[in-house]
Amino acid sequence: MGIMRILDETGDTVVKWSVDDPETLVEAESIFRSLSMERRMAFARPAGAPASETTLIKAFDAEAEEIVWVRAVVGG
């Protein structure tokens, strides 16, 4: 079971998928694609690992334990 955390005004919205459940997998992939098009960045990490163990990913990884979606950064 993998989870995606998408940072938003509620803290984060969680999307879960399972490699054994094609329906959740397709939905997670679809969300991944749409968020990538919004110029957001995805970081995969083993569940609960610190930021130093995260990896920037460009494509959906069904084996990832946790994917954290953050927004693009700009100068203020």
């Binding site: 938003d8 110029r39 927004r71 693009a72 950064v73 700009v74 100068g75 203020g76």
Partner: peptide
């Protein structure tokens, strides 16, 4: 100064 896009909603 660096911020996420639409940071005021986070």
């Amino acid at each position: 100064c660096v911020l996420p896009v639409n940071h005021e909603t986070l």
